[in-house]
Computed example of a mutant assay.
Amino acid sequence: MQTKPFRIGTRGSPLALAQASETRARLMAAHGLPEEMFEIVVLSTKGDRITDRPLAEVGGKGLFTQELEDQLSSGELDFAVHSSKDMPTVLPDGLELSAFLPREDFRDAFIGRTAPTLAALPDGATIGSSSLRRQALIRRRRPDISVITFRGLVETRLRKLEEGQVDATLLALAGLNRLTMSDVVTEVMDPADFPPAPAQGAICIESRIGDDRVLDLLEAINDRPTSDAVSCERAFLAALDGSCRTPIAGYARCDGDHLHFSGLILTPDGQQEHAVEISGLRRDALALGRKAGETVRSAAGPDFFADWT
Rank of each mutant, 00 (worst) to 15 (best):
Arg139Glu: 11
Asp144Gly: 05
Val185Leu: 01
Ser207Gly: 11
Arg113Asn: 02
Ala192Asp: 12
Thr169Val: 01
Ser130Leu: 09
Arg140Ile: 05
Leu95His: 09
Gly152Leu: 09
Pro196Glu: 06
Val184Trp: 02
Pro191Met: 02
Ile138Ser: 07
Leu153Pro: 08
Arg159Tyr: 10
Ile209His: 05
Gly112Arg: 02
Arg107Pro: 08
Arg113Thr: 01
Arg141Leu: 15
Arg213Trp: 10
Ala199Lys: 09
Arg142Gln: 05
Gly210Asp: 01
Phe110Met: 02
Gly164Val: 00
Leu173Gln: 11
Val154Ser: 09
Glu96Leu: 14
Phe100Cys: 13
Pro191Val: 08
Asp144Leu: 02
Arg151Asn: 14
Met181Ser: 10
Leu173Ile: 04
Ile145Asn: 05
Glu162Leu: 10
Leu121Gln: 02
Pro116Thr: 08
Gly94Met: 10
Arg134Thr: 15
Ala119Arg: 08
Asp212Phe: 13
Asn177Val: 12
Asp167Gly: 00
Asp193Ser: 12
Arg178Glu: 15
Val184His: 08
Cys204Asp: 14
Gln200Met: 12
Pro102Arg: 01
Ser129His: 12
Thr186Ser: 11
Ala120Met: 05
Lys160Phe: 11
Arg141Val: 10
Leu158Val: 00
Asp190Asn: 06
Thr156Gln: 15
Ala172Phe: 05
Arg142His: 01
Thr149Met: 13
Ser131Phe: 03
Ser146Arg: 14
Ala168Ser: 01
Arg151Leu: 15
Phe110Gln: 08
Ala136Val: 09
Ala192Thr: 15
Ala168Glu: 05
Met181Gly: 07
Leu176Gln: 07
Val184Ala: 10
Ile127Thr: 08
Leu173Arg: 14
Ala115Trp: 03
Arg133Ala: 13
Thr114Ala: 04
Phe150His: 12
Pro116Ala: 09
Leu97Trp: 13
Thr126Lys: 05
Ala120Leu: 09
Val184Arg: 11
Ala174Leu: 00
Met181Gln: 13
Leu118Tyr: 07
Phe106Asn: 12
Phe110Pro: 07
Ala136Asn: 08
Val166Ser: 03
Ala136Cys: 02
Pro195His: 04
Thr117Met: 10
Phe150Trp: 11
Ile111Phe: 03
Leu218Arg: 03
Val188Asn: 02
Arg113Gly: 05
Thr180Leu: 13
Pro122Asn: 06
Ala120Pro: 07
Asp190Ile: 00
Ala109Tyr: 06
Asp123Gln: 12
Ser98Lys: 11
Arg178Gly: 04
Phe100Leu: 12
Gly164Phe: 06
Ala202Lys: 05
Pro195Gln: 04
Gly128Tyr: 05
Ile209Glu: 10
Gln165Asp: 13
Arg208Phe: 04
Arg134Ala: 13
Asp144Ser: 04
Ala192Phe: 13
Arg213Leu: 13
Gln135Ser: 14
Ser131Asn: 08
Leu161Tyr: 04
Ala168Lys: 00
Ala119Gly: 14
Asp144Phe: 02
Leu218His: 00
Arg107Tyr: 04
